[in-house]
Nucleic acid binder design. Sequence first.
DNA 1: TTATAGATTGCCT
DNA 2: GGCAATCTATAAT
Length: 217
Amino acid sequence: MGRRIQFDLERVRPLSVEFYNRDPRRVARDLLGKVLVRELDGEQMAGRIVEVEAYLGTGDAAAHSAAGLTPRNRVLFGPPGRSYVYFIYGNHYCLNVSCLPDGVAGGVLFRALEPLFGLEAMARNRGLSGELTARVQRLLTTGPGRLCDAMKITRTRDNDLDLTTPESGIWIGNDGARRPRVAVTPRIGITKSADQTLRYIVAGNEFVSGPRAGLGN
DNA sequence: TTATAGATTGCCT
DNA sequence: GGCAATCTATAAT
C-alpha cells in the first residue's frame, strides 16, 4: 500500500510579479520550496519545486538569450513572471519563468518537482502504469522534460503565460512551507559557462535529478 | 538552402 | 555508463 499524499491546494497563494522582478539567482533560490500548480481540462496537478537553474541575460553563454533577442527567446526579454517554454532534442519541452524588468533578459529553468497532487493524472500523462512506488514517483517530475510531460506543458499552448494567476492554468504559489535548506552546484547538461554554480537544489531531497552533492549555502 | 548543436530521456550493453 | 532518437532555431553558405 502506497503512502497517501495529503496536500491542500487551497492553501497555496500565487507569488507576485515583483517576486520575479529580480536577479535570476535570487529568484531561483527563493523558488525552492514553492509550489508549481497545473490545471488542465478540469484536472489539477501540483509539485513542490526542488531543483532549478538560473540563466542570466548577460555574461552567460549558456543562456538562450546570450545571442540577443530572437523570435524564440523573446519571452526572456519581456516582463517578469511569464512562462518561457522551448522544445529541445526533438523530444522534450522545458519550462522557465522570465525574470527582471521588461527589456532585460533572464530566467529560471524548472528542473525537478516533488509530486504533491494529482499523481495519478501525472503518471497517466507520462505513460506510466501500476503502483505509485517511490521509484515510479521519482519518474513523474524529476527532470525538466519529465515535469513538462507529466503536466502536459507544450510550447504552442503554454508559452508566454502569466505565471502569477491561476487563470493561466500554470502558476506558482506559496503554501507557507518552511524555507528549505539549499545547496548550489554547477548547471547540468550544458557545455558553455559550465563553471558557474547556478543550479539550486533542496539539500537531500530525493526528487532532485542528477548529482545531489553540493555544499550547503 | 543546407548544416549543426542542443538547458534530455530511455534503452542498450 | 554509453549512445541513438528526433525536431527546430539559428547560423552558415
